[in-house]
Design a protein around this nucleic acid. Structure first.
Length: 590
RNA sequence: GGAGUGGUAGUUCAGUUGGUUAGAAUGCUGCCCUGUCACGGCAGAGGUCGCGGGUUCGAGUCCCGUCCACUCCGCCA
């Protein structure tokens, strides 16, 4: 039906008779001559229709935007002065001999070259949205990324094994999407939140190196970087240490960036412990493009009168920290904005000091809190933060989580807003995650990573005696402030796994009911193993510069987890419900 | 569950202090135009101001509720 892609035509095709097929991107009717920009997946080519060929001209006259056309014609050089350097095929044009309308189109609801469209219009007409050049590029980059991953992993001896989509519900973690079983009335499958347990079982089964580019499901609220179904690059290996696993994964990520964007990432990636990341950046996924850092002042503030600081410093699990912003010209309004900004993270205020003249204490400092702090303490603050004249120092004093969240987020915001952020790609391993974090609401310990993460060698006894200080063999790969992958060395011994379940308050009965198949199989010679899962959507979104992963997913859902194209989810027939043995508690509103 | 931004023509938006017939650009339709490429010119059609209620002589504008889209907090082992 066709001989060439529109976007591939060039001067190399001069004088050839070609047949193109594609969509009428734009039509310019000059009365005596009609230009049609014909578009296919490779790009545009200008088709010229002369009245000399009456039939082709008449057809071109009827054509409208997004009509599907087949054009046969001769490639010729454009007249001097009419070339279009913005177009790959801009030196040539196709003189139409025949034009056929393969299919007309309704008038599209928006212009395809409009890049200022609302999200709901785009999602409602997703098919047309996907025709736009940007979306075509995004999805093709996504394909290239997965190809690079498969190539790299294949070269390292990994094999792709599929795991069930219909599996069983797990107690901890996100809400499951449930699928009722017709054959077992009252029982449900769950869609996997990740193939975690299956990939561990595959290690026990001796496959040694597994990977899968796999859909995962979590029934939680959405964000710009969270969809109810998303794609993970899921990897597991046997007989490798933490360091060996990370080295291998770095290699894959470097290959991915090199092959798709021709970017050289550092070798090796820098590495930082979780504790250091929290201390210096207030975050377990620091954006290293921003050079600003937090300074800890907790010990210093234990002895001051100022109740806000002292109270936080003396509170168990409290923290006082400073964020120095060098040479910051901050207006009162900006500081007010920042104060409001940190309040979303639970901070009750945002104390600050403007350093006007550090040689004169305290009058060289401009701040509502200077009067509460002794000159000696102020001098210490200036020294520790290495403050210079013209700097602004922000303070956080509260529970460590609030201080870290607030100052950590402020650091990133100020860093980018005020132009401190460097360019480029800054990967980082964050390692030595704690085993557990305390859940204030549930009054219990919960797994920081997941309950199959191994404790550091020598930390097994802490699981029971001091769970808060038990360190794990868990690690995250962070890129420019986003967590792009997370993994760990797993527990391969049933007795250690049982201890973790106890620490998490999961009883023997519950553990064997929910994870019996894992615990049992760990006893059949489970090898030491570990792995990682990367968020494909996030990685590709970052690579394309997209603000949301919706822009790298062909058919994403809205924030209320609906598909505006298909209108899923939808009610089902009473008959279907009856077959499944289900009755709705509340009849949906008609 | 909570905080915020937005919803007006097919699309993207403007709409003053509550005041006559709700505008612009673009798209669409028709006519004209032989070198444009965001073609140009002329004319025309196109509106449940998200929805419901209230205040008012009068509501796109004020109030209450509600729905939808987006961002964030919680949540996401």
């Amino acid at each position: 039906m066709r001989t060439h892609y529109c976007g591939d035509l060039s001067a190399a095709n001069l004088d050839q008779i070609v047949t193109l097929a594609g969509w009428a991107h734009r039509r310019r009717d000059h009365g005596g001559v009609i230009f049609i920009d014909l578009r296919d997946r490779e790009g545009l080519a200008q088709v010229v229709c002369d009245p000399d060929r009456a039939e082709a001209f008449a057809t071109a006259d009827r054509a409208r935007n997004e009509f599907v056309l087949r054009v046969k014609g001769k490639v010729r050089r454009r007249p001097e002065g009419t070339t279009n350097p913005a177009l790959r095929s801009g030196e040539i044009e196709v003189l139409a001999h025949e034009v056929e309308i393969l299919n007309p189109s309704l008038t599209p609801p928006f212009q395809l070259d409009d890049d200022n469209l609302s999200e709901s219009v785009r999602l409602q007409y997703r098919v047309l949205d996907l025709r736009r050049e940007q979306m075509q590029k995004n999805l093709r980059l996504r394909y290239k990324v997965t190809m690079a991953v498969r190539k790299a992993l294949d070269a390292l001896g990994f094999i792709d094994i599929e795991t069930p989509m219909l599996t069983r519900s797990t107690p901890e973690g996100a809400r499951d999407y449930l699928v009722p079983s017709r054959v077992h009335p009252g029982e449900f499958f769950a869609l996997p939140q990740s193939p975690q347990i299956f990939k561990q079982l595959l290690m026990v089964a001796g496959f040694d190196r597994y990977y899968q580019i796999v859909r995962c499901f979590r029934d939680e609220d959405l964000r710009a970087d969270r969809q109810p179904e998303f794609t993970q690059i899921d990897i597991e290996t046997s007989f490798l240490s933490e360091d060996e696993i990370r080295a291998m994964m770095e290699k894959m990520i470097r290959a991915m960036f090199k092959e798709t964007l021709d970017i050289d990432l550092p070798d090796p990636f820098p590495r930082m412990t979780w504790a250091e990341a929290m201390g210096r950046y207030g975050s377990d996924k620091p954006d290293l493009r921003v050079p600003l850092e937090l300074t800890d002042l907790t010990d210093l503030m234990k002895s001051v009168e100022f109740k806000v600081f002292r109270g936080a410093a003396e509170m168990p699990g409290g923290r006082v920290a400073a964020l120095r912003v060098p040479g910051a010209e901050l207006s009162r309004k900006e500081i007010d904005d920042y104060t409001q900004f940190v309040s979303i993270y639970g901070a009750k205020g945002l104390a600050y000091i403007k350093v006007n003249d550090k040689s004169k204490l305290p009058e060289g400092l401009q701040s509502p809190i200077v009067k509460f702090l002794p000159a000696e303490t102020l001098a210490q603050v200036l020294e520790r933060t290495r403050a210079e004249n013209g700097d602004v120092i922000f303070f956080g004093a509260d529970k460590a989580k609030i201080v870290n969240d607030a100052l950590g987020a402020l650091r990133v915001r100020v860093g980018h807003e005020k132009g401190y952020a460097g360019k480029g790609w800054r990967p980082l391993w964050v390692v030595d995650f704690p085993m557990f974090e305390y859940d204030d609401e549930g009054k219990r310990w919960s797994a920081m990573h997941h309950p199959f993460t191994a404790p550091k060698d020598g930390h097994e006894d802490l699981l029971a005696s001091d769970p808060g200080n038990a360190i794990s063999k868990g690690y995250d790969m962070v890129l420019n402030g986003s967590e792009i992958g997370g993994g760990s060395v797993r527990i391969h011994r049933a007795d250690v796994q049982a201890k973790v379940f106890i620490a998490l308050g999961i009883s023997d009965e519950e553990a064997s009911a929910k994870f019996g198949f894992l615990l049992e199989n760990l006893q059949f010679g489970a090898p030491p193993h570990g792995g990682i899962a990367f968020g494909l959507d996030r990685i590709v979104a970052m690579m394309t510069g997209a603000e949301s992963i919706r822009d790298v997913i062909a058919f994403p859902k809205t924030q209320r987890a609906q598909c505006l194209l298909t209108h899923a989810p939808s009610p089902v027939d009473e008959k279907q419900l009856r077959e499944l043995g289900l009755r709705l508690r509340d009849k949906p509103k008609a």
